[in-house]
Design a protein around this nucleic acid. Sequence first.
DNA 1: GTTAACAATTGATTCATATCAATAAACGAT
DNA 2: ATCGTTTATTGATATGAATCAATTGTTAAC
Lengths: 249, 249
Amino acid sequence: MAANDFIPIPKMTVTMDYDPYETLCQDCRLVELCLPYGLPKTELEQFETIVKNKAPLLTDQYLYQQDEKCQSLFVVKTGSFRSFIYSEDGAEQTIGFYLPGELMGFDAFQHGRFTSSSIALETSKVCELPLSQLNKLCRLIPSLQSQMLRVLGKEIESDHNQILLLGHRSAKEKMATFLLRLSHRYNALGFSKTEFNLTMKRQDIANFLGITNETVSRLLAELNHQGIITINRRNVKINNMDSLKVIVE
Amino acid sequence: MAANDFIPIPKMTVTMDYDPYETLCQDCRLVELCLPYGLPKTELEQFETIVKNKAPLLTDQYLYQQDEKCQSLFVVKTGSFRSFIYSEDGAEQTIGFYLPGELMGFDAFQHGRFTSSSIALETSKVCELPLSQLNKLCRLIPSLQSQMLRVLGKEIESDHNQILLLGHRSAKEKMATFLLRLSHRYNALGFSKTEFNLTMKRQDIANFLGITNETVSRLLAELNHQGIITINRRNVKINNMDSLKVIVE
DNA sequence: GTTAACAATTGATTCATATCAATAAACGAT
DNA sequence: ATCGTTTATTGATATGAATCAATTGTTAAC
């Protein structure tokens, strides 16, 4: 049976060597994906001085909560996060999942308070960027300023893609897109693009895609049955990337 | 019959007195909603110098197109716009509608090219903000810089709300939310919040909400039948705001 | 190790909304 | 005014995904 073929993979796929006293962006393997990307050495050193270390967060611990005052932005260093908003009727909608190198907290720019909550999906570490200092630095370093806008533009573009996905795709297309996007992001981080562990529950995926967890289960089972993926609990192997691409068109 | 009860309303609901030589933000009635909101007089005068006039756009004229190089941001001055992205299969997804005072073009920040297209829904006028000059000015005027981030944050928050709407709402809830949001925005512009003309087609609304135009028609007819709204072609009267709010919960 | 709580799977049924199809109304052009 | 085109309405039917419900597998706690 397929389930026995798995080479065990440690559960925290996206955890890197971690030194608690490490704050140097220069040595961070994520620097190419992160906010200070492309800064000359001198400016990078300036940037490093404002980055604050934060104690690692455990699974289900909040990084920040909706309506809380926003003092800092956060970059995922290791692990992963889920962000979500509460709607008026108390139900929650998952807005996004965050992997290393990705920034969180932009939604607070309008009123200075987070409009979403963010919760760790596994033991995770973030770099904290205090806004007051970040703003000052942006004024001093024009290229940091443009980099900031670039990252904001990326966030907006990715939100637009999510709108497209939710508005115009069948459950199957949503599921395939989800897997392909994850694959792509893991790959950008230097991990395998064909095998990774999902750090979120089926329910989280379902909520994110605007479908039910039963549908997620069924679709994953179907893809598994067709041999396009091999899935065992949270472990995913993509056997046929092209078939997934055909599904999303 | 209800159709006879309508007081004719000029078709362009959101058109203001327009002087082709007018570029002064100081005298613009939208200044409170626009990017330079809150700037002291001297800074506002600086800002005015970079605002470019652009010839009015006619219905169905593109303001910009997807993949085109982005040189400027745009603010709607009069009229309205629809922005949309093409998906890989060629179908389009409407991302948003833009009314006076609202900024367009942020999605281009990541790579310098528009990731969406924007098209005029009626004869419309925009203010053009050349990016090169805007960036320089942001460095000179810190409060413009924060205002810029605030507006970006607003865009992100509104995208998140759209994700919530598309992911977790029934067609009826989507329709009611759409009407309430329009009402709210028209009201902020100083127009009636109970009576306005839709500047977009049923098909555009449907596409925006991730439903079909037939469903839009049926839902509007149902709301009309229940007396919650009175609708005749593009003209909407909201008779019972609370009922709409109950529908969206 | 055993049990309780949680997470995921799988099946049966229902329902909301899409799809297909046919008019009808409005608008622009001649 | 009239005709053709576009836009909107309305009805009949089909269907994808939700809901309801029952198990099974996994993890954490004692």
